[in-house]
């Protein structure tokens, strides 16, 4: 799984950090998403998938299966 984030679309709601804090973080000054791990381990794939679905700004995209 490859994860990408679009910081321009992020509205700083924090949904992704709540679900997968090992993969996503927020910038301190404006809450915009920071990607910590672009290729998370398999045990986190389900949560990362949920984070992408839960993102209100559709700022998280997932690609690949490796």
């Amino acid at each position: 799984m490859k994860v990408a984030v679009d910081q321009d679309r992020c509205c700083g709601a924090g949904a992704c950090v709540l679900l997968a804090p090992d993969v996503f973080d927020q910038r301190d000054d404006d809450g915009v998403v920071v990607l910590l791990d672009g290729q998370p381990p398999e045990e986190l794939h389900a949560l990362v998938g949920e984070a992408a679905a839960a993102c209100p700004g559709a700022a998280i995209s997932l690609g690949g299966t490796a």
Binding site: G14, D28, D29, G31
Partner: peptide, 13 residues
């Protein structure tokens, strides 16, 4: 405007 006031509402803060 929203980004100007987001900082205090991050999960960490």
């Amino acid at each position: 405007l929203r980004r100007m006031v987001t900082a205090p509402f991050t999960l960490r803060r």
